[in-house]
Write a protein that binds this DNA or RNA. Sequence first.
DNA 1: GCCTACAGTCTACATTGTAGAGAAGTTGCA
DNA 2: TGCAACTTCTCTACAATGTAGACTGTAGGC
Lengths: 237, 237
Amino acid sequence: MSPEEHPAPPAAPGKKARLSREIVLSTALALVDAEGLDALTMRRLGQELGRDPMSLYRYAANRAALLDGVSELVLDELAIIPDDPDWQSQLRRIAHDLRLLALRHPNVVPLLVTRPLSTPLGLRPLGTLRPLEQILSLLIDAGFAPVDALHVYRAYYGYLYGHILNELQEFVVDPEENEALLRLGLHRLPPKDFPRLRALAPVLADYDGMAELDEGITILLSGLAGRLPLPDSPTEP
Amino acid sequence: MSPEEHPAPPAAPGKKARLSREIVLSTALALVDAEGLDALTMRRLGQELGRDPMSLYRYAANRAALLDGVSELVLDELAIIPDDPDWQSQLRRIAHDLRLLALRHPNVVPLLVTRPLSTPLGLRPLGTLRPLEQILSLLIDAGFAPVDALHVYRAYYGYLYGHILNELQEFVVDPEENEALLRLGLHRLPPKDFPRLRALAPVLADYDGMAELDEGITILLSGLAGRLPLPDSPTEP
DNA sequence: GCCTACAGTCTACATTGTAGAGAAGTTGCA
DNA sequence: TGCAACTTCTCTACAATGTAGACTGTAGGC
C-alpha cells in the first residue's frame, strides 16, 4: 500500500482511456493479423490492452462472440458502392476487393469461412449479412428477378470464396523463396503416386491469383448471363 | 489386489484389442460426426476407446495431427475412378460425390477447408493431395496441357468448395421446420437494412443444393472448355 | 529363465475460458 | 458538497484441456 506501489498511471496517460467495443475488436484484429488466431486468447488480448482479461467480457459475451466481432470488423472493410451501372463489372470489382481483403487479413479467412457454419443465417452478426443484402440489391436493381439474383449470388460467392481459399493455400510460404520451398515440400511426395503434381512444381510456384480469379469470374458471369433472362448484357452481342 | 479387483478382461473380451491408427481415427471421425469438432478432445476420445488419453499419442503426434488424420480419412471416402472418357462428366460426377461426402460429414468440412491453410502444400497428409493428383491426371489424360489442367482444376475445385460451404451454411437448421426457423431468424433483421434478404426468405428456405451445384459446374466447365485449347469437347459442336 | 522393445498408464503441470464477488471510478441528484 | 446508483474493471478461483516424463506391464527372442 506504499505510494510507490501503483504501476504508473501518470507515466502512461493514454493507456487508461475507457475501453470500447471498437478498441477491443480492432486490437483483437491486429493481434490476429500479426500472430494468428491462436494468439488471440482472452489473457493475451487483455495484456495487449493493459487490462484484466475479465474486462473483455463486457464487450463480447465470450470468445466465440469475440471471433464473430473480428470477422464483422474485417467485412466492414469491404465497401460495396453501386456506382457502376454494369452488374458484371460491379461484381468483378467486388471480387477483386474481397480478394485483396483476404490477402490483407489471411489469418481471419478461416473465421470468415467457418463461423457461419455454426450460426443460422438469420442469427449472424449483421455486418456479415450486409454484403449478401447489398449484392442482392445490386442484382435486382440491374433487372434480375429476385430468385435469379439469389442464384447468381450463390454461384458468384461460391466461386469467390473457393478461389480465395485456393489462393491462400498456395501462399503459406515466404514468396521470396517460394519456389525452392515448394520444390522441397513436393520433393517429399512419392514420385510413383504423384507424378503430375511433382512435374507441375514450377508452375505451382508462380501463381497469379488475380488473373486466375478474373478469368474464373469472367467465365462464370458470362455463363450466368447467357442462361438467365435479364434486361441487357453489355458484353454479349 | 484381491482376485475380484481386475475390471473384466474375460467379461469384455473385444475391448482390449490392440489399438491401431485406423481404429483411433475412425473412432475420432465417428465422434466428430456425432457431436462436432469440439467434442473431439484427447480425453474424450480415450474414454471412447476405453484407453488412457495418453495412449493416443502413439498414433498421432498431437491433436492437430489427429485432426489431419480425420480429414484424410474422410477424403479417402472419395473414390476417383477414371471410367468415363468424357472429362466434363467425370468432373461433374466427382463434384456430386464430394458434395454428398460433405453432407455426410458436415462437421469435418471446416477441417477440410482450413487445415490446408496452415500447412504448406508439400507437407500435407498424402491423402489430402491425392484428389488433386488424380484430377490433374484425369485432365492431362483428356488432352489438356499440364498448365491448363492446373487452371481447370483450380477453377473447378474453387467453385466446388465454395458451393459446399454455401450449401452447408444454409442447413444448420432442422430441415423439418426449416422454413419457420429461417423466417424466425430473418425476422430479427431490421427491415430497413435488409429488405431483399427478408423478401427472399421463402426462397431461401427451399434450396436445392444439388441442382445449384450442377448448374454452376455446367457453366464453369463449358466456359473453361470454350476458352482453352483441348482435343475434343463432346458437348460443344 | 532373463533382456529388450514396445503399448499403455499414471502423475503432474502450464494454459485456457469463464463464473462470481468485489473494488474503483463515474454520474445524477439532493 | 454528500450520497447513492450504476458502470467498468479487477481479483480470486476452478474446471477443462493438451501434453511432457517417468513408470508398468506384457510379448517375444536368446
